[in-house]
Each structure stands twice: as C-alpha cells, then as structure tokens.
C-alpha cells in the first residue's frame, strides 16, 4: 500500500470545498472512472460530518485525508482531532413510508455505507481515524 496523495484542510466549509477537486485530481491515476463518483459521495459525507459536528464547543481543528492504493484496493484514510464520533456505530435513519413522515436530513451515513463496502473506525491518541476501503475490480480473478 503506498500513499498517492495527502490533503490537509481546516474543518470548515471552506476546507470542505477543497475535497472534491483534490480527489478528482489525485484519484485519476488509481481509480476507475466509474468508481470515482461513489468515492466522492463517501468522502464528502465523511468530511461534512467532521466539519458540521466535530467541533461543537471549540474552534475547528484540522482534517487530514490520505489517498492510498495497492493492487487490491484504494483507501481513503481520514484523521481529525474533533469529538469522538464512530460513524460505523451510529444508527441509520429509518426509511420513511411517505413524504409526510419523512425527515429532511440525516442520510449521510446511509450514503457512506451504501457506497463504501468497508468502513473501519478507530480512536487513536485522541484522534478519530476513519478508513474507507474500496476494493478494485479484479475481473481476472472472477473469470
């Protein structure tokens, strides 16, 4: 596994705006074009959670995102020093039966789990560490 690119940004809306163009550029060499939009959705949601909820009672800290790759998978590793938040343990919002019962927001975690098959969370040295693993297509192994 090698590091393809690293992005450091403030945990703010301005910082979040840098995420999409960074991944678009950094992933060009190691992610299939049809897989990139799903990765973009997952990364947007994961970083948005940190920006919107990670620093409720103090000035926003920093977020570091690593894009890593090997022959089998592409990884996005997101590290932040915000409050403890484990997106793998948080409950998903139930699907509403109709518009009248639907709550407008709260579908970010659903999108993360739908578009990323492997989400691993750890709290390490006072920091959140979220590892999003996207397996590569290996048609040679499924033949």
């Amino acid at each position: 596994m090698h590091i393809v690119s690293v992005l450091r940004l403030p945990a703010s809306l301005e910082g979040l705006a840098a995420v999409y163009p960074w991944l678009d550029h950094a992933a060009a060499a190691c992610v299939a074009a049809d897989r990139l939009p799903g990765m973009q959705v997952v990364l947007e949601e994961a970083v948005a959670n940190i920006v919107l909820h990670g620093f409720p009672d103090r000035a926003p800290g920093a977020v570091e995102i690593q894009l890593c790759a090997d022959d089998d998978a592409v990884l996005l590793v997101i590290e932040d020093d915000g409050m403890v938040f484990d997106p793998t343990a948080a409950p998903l919002r139930p699907v509403a039966a109709n518009l009248a019962e639907a709550v407008p927001g709260g579908r970010g975690l659903t999108l993360i789990r739908r578009f990323c098959p492997s989400v691993i969370y750890a709290r390490q040295d006072g920091r959140n560490l979220l590892t999003l693993r996207f397996p590569r297509d290996r048609p040679d192994r499924t033949a």
Partner: peptide, 20 residues
C-alpha cells in the same frame, strides 16, 4: 453532476412543503 445528502435534504424539504 453531483449530489450529496444535503442536496437530498433540500429535495425532501421542498417535497414535503408541496405534499403538505
């Protein structure tokens, strides 16, 4: 070209107002 959960939120909010 791209939509994340905050976009879905806007759609649902708008939809609820009209269905209401």
């Amino acid at each position: 070209e791209f939509m994340a959960s905050m976009g879905l939120r806007s759609l649902v909010k708008c939809g609820k107002a009209i269905r209401g």
